[in-house]
Write a protein that binds this DNA or RNA. Structure first.
Lengths: 237, 237
DNA sequence: TGTACATCAGTGAACGCGCGTTCACTGATGTAC
DNA sequence: TGTACATCAGTGAACGCGCGTTCACTGATGTAC
């Protein structure tokens, strides 16, 4: 049977396939991914996909990298917009970024799960592909903390943060091979991330439905509290 | 072919099957569960399992309930032992409980993932079976907070905790149908849980390997910090 | 304007696999007499 | 002590299914002349 595709129609693209995959995962969960089912939905036979992704794992990798990139973009533009719109205050920009973190997770639950949920059995993410985008997202937060730190607004030598001397924080070099972040900045970033991440994970998988009635309000309260404790928010909002 | 089993051998039991399932999940991840593979490892044919678990979902439910129960037991005995060994101070007992939370997760990564990781697609946990044990574990934490609260050691009316008036915290009734926990207690419990849970999830799925070199120390520092902020730990350890 | 040709995206059949579940059955066990 | 019998845990074959991947192929397209 001849291919029905005419030259006007866009035909199969890597983008098409990824979109189909994302849609399928939305319905079936991250482990419901299936080359054959994606092909079926695109009105194409399964082997056709091999022209774009030699193996299923390559498709998964592409989806993961896309997700990290999309999240990093969302965080980055949220920070920039807040800077342009409201003020240059790093605390307020950080607040906008943290709001966006949750918003992105709730708007893209499948992709968030793909990144941060159970590892897919038998699949090993190639770090050299996924790591840069993953780091870029977290660096948005670290950069704002660094800015506050350089303004002397974070706890430091004069106003020491409780931080045990034996605690060794791994060194994460800044994006462009610049000087590494000071360990106070990394510590605060990680600490805040843990808190926020736990909230979102438990909300996403519905472990807190009987405990918290308005998870959005709760989140908002927590991030304001967090930033206020660091001296980054003087007035509310 | 006759059954090789003689009366001395224990033969197949529900416990055997669950143990095999847990072992399989340790190797293959929570979604690697397979009736046939479990049966194969137990030296038995797949239909034999149907005498003990009518459907695969029933086996999963049993595993989930077991995990919640085991975690709740671990938390509960940790609190009791700390009370007997060290002091009756609820803060110190809480510290022991929080240490146990992480220890249990790291010792039972598969079961922790089964409970708190991605939902298994197509499987819906029957709440009436899983909820009591899930609540029991969390109640260990809440009970200790309640004890501190009744001793006036938590922030209260006199020494108010920042807690927005509009924040509505769902009511969780105490185990035996006793009076519900005060909302300060629930709030602090949930808040701490979020923080701790995020740490453990990110550690378990190895998202923080490049950020934190000694995750055990980091965790220890965080929980001591957390309790100190609530006024539950005056001296270290 | 017309013809020959290379390209290459997508096809269809097939591979070997593992899965959950059903079914009639078998045969060792323990009990009742 | 011996015999007849009910029980029921586990068997083996079969069902229908979907999966990832391979392979030789086809035929529309665009290009070169």
């Amino acid at each position: 049977m001849p291919r029905p595709r005419s030259s006007q129609q866009p035909g199969l693209t890597a983008g098409n396939i990824k979109d189909g995959a994302r849609q399928l995962m939305d319905e079936m969960g991250t482990q419901g991914l299936s080359l054959r089912e994606i092909a079926r939905r695109l009105g194409v036979t399964a082997p056709a996909i091999y022209n774009y992704f030699p193996r299923l794992d390559d498709l998964i990798t592409a989806l993961i990298v896309d997700a990290y990139r999309d999240l990093a973009d969302a965080l980055s533009t949220a920070g920039q917009r807040a800077g342009a719109r409201v003020s240059a205050d790093p605390g307020k920009r950080l607040l906008a970024v943290l709001r966006t973190y949750r918003a992105w997770a709730l708007e893209h639950p499948t992709e968030f799960t793909l990144i941060y949920g159970n590892p897919i059995p038998g699949y090993q993410a190639p770090e050299e592909q996924t790591r840069p985008e993953a780091v870029r997202g977290f660096a948005v937060i670290l950069d704002l903390l660094l800015e506050a730190h350089s303004q002397g607004r974070l706890p430091g030598r004069a106003n020491p943060l409780p931080m045990p001397p034996t605690l060794k924080v791994g060194i994460l070099s800044a994006p462009e091979g610049q000087t590494p972040y000071p360990s106070e900045v990394v510590y605060l970033g990680v600490m805040g991330w843990y808190h926020i991440h736990g909230m979102i994970m438990l909300e996403l998988f519905e472990h807190n439905t009987s405990l918290v009635s308005d998870t959005g309000l709760f989140y908002e309260f927590e991030i304001q509290n967090l930033l206020a404790r660091l001296g980054l928010l003087t007035e509310t909002n």
